[in-house]
């Protein structure tokens, strides 16, 4: 870790000022990702602006979740659990209890990738002499979709997957003090060159709120992972369906940990419209979801995991859980 300035302002306005004032400033909420990046010398900001103490940024009020709300608070909410199970399930699997006490919703959405090439100082796209270290190396945890380019890390936020499936939005406070609202999926883009970020929230801006839709259908998330404790998804899917007369009227199916941005599968959604949600139709939707997968040399197994995650998220949404003993 290198020396840095530290500010912990009590209001969002003062936070904006602090972010504008220093060189190379970053926002810190729970710090569960930022601190590690700083210790590993992957990120060395000149100034860290701590926002978790800003009261207006934390807490759940009807459909609005403050960005500085801890995952523990989110998971403790009965409303979230009952009405937005996809979100609740994704959040309750993050890390472990201790981590969720510190980690925040905003921080989870804006955390940087876990890619071990990135984390060992090889850059976000991990290129060396014009060649991708990921392609040539150990890519077992990397992307299986959108793998034509050089951005082969996977988007790490499991909350983003659930929130996009639910159709949620985020509010961003711009450096000029003006607020704008965007769909969660607009928080992410695929970088094309080293130096570009996979996050669209700009320097000097603060993610302030997540806004859930008032009306939602049934939803669920399913996460395939290795360890029970403190681990990352190998593949995660969130399914959100609105049923009318027993048939799927609207479907939003999103996958995570499989592409450089949260991956929405219109193919899987299309295969379900007008059909009942059954093991057969869920299986077909899952197959459709992975049809376009182009795995790398070491992660073909993730195609199967992504497929299973979609199938299970869909069936879990309607209470058909076949995989537990």
């Amino acid at each position: 870790m290198r020396a840095f300035d530290y500010a912990s302002p009590p209001t969002a306005d003062l936070a904006l000022k602090a972010l504008a004032g220093g060189t190379d400033t970053v926002v810190m909420a729970g710090g569960t990702d930022l601190m590690n990046r700083m210790k590993d010398d992957v990120t060395s900001p000149g100034r860290v602006v701590h926002i978790a103490g800003i009261k207006t940024l934390a807490g759940i009020d009807a459909e609005t979740i403050g960005a500085a709300t801890t995952l523990a608070t989110l998971v403790a909410s009965k409303v979230i659990k009952d009405k937005y199970p996809a979100l609740w399930q994704a959040a309750s699997e993050v890390g472990a209890v201790q981590l969720r006490n510190m980690a925040t919703v905003g921080g989870n959405l804006l955390q940087r990738p876990r890619c071990w090439y990135y984390r060992t100082g090889n850059g976000l796209l991990a290129m060396k002499d014009g060649k991708s270290l990921v392609r040539a190396g150990d890519n077992r945890y990397h992307s299986i979709f959108m793998t034509e380019g050089d951005a082969l890390f996977v988007a790490p936020s499991s909350l983003a997957v659930a929130l996009i499936a639910l159709g949620a939005k985020a509010t961003i406070l711009g450096a000029d003090g003006k607020e704008r609202t965007v769909a969660i999926e607009e928080l992410y883009s695929i970088p094309k060159a080293e130096g570009e970020s996979e996050l669209t929230v700009g320097k000097g801006e603060i993610l302030t709120k997540v806004i859930l839709p008032k009306t939602v259908g049934k939803s669920a998330s399913y996460e395939a992972r290795e360890k029970e404790s403190y681990d990352w998804p190998l593949a995660i899917a969130s399914a959100h369906v609105v049923l009318e007369g027993g048939k799927v009227k609207v479907a939003r199916i999103v996958l995570g940990s499989v592409a450089p941005i949260p991956f929405r599968s219109e193919a899987a959604e299309a295969s379900l419209i007008g059909k009942a949600l059954t093991p057969e139709t869920a299986t077909a939707a899952a197959a459709a979801a992975v049809k376009s997968a182009k795995p790398l040399s070491g992660n073909a197994y993730k195609v199967k995991l992504a497929e299973v995650a979609v199938k299970r998220a869909l069936l879990a949404a309607v209470g058909q859980i076949y995989w537990e003993v």
């Binding site: 876990r114 060992t120 060396k128 270290l133 040539a136 360890k227």
Partner: peptide, 18 residues
């Protein structure tokens, strides 16, 4: 886990060294 190109250990931590 070792990276063949750079020769680095990719999981010298308590996170991805499981």
């Amino acid at each position: 886990v070792m990276d063949p190109t750079t020769g680095q250990m990719l999981n010298a931590d308590m996170e991805l060294y499981k």
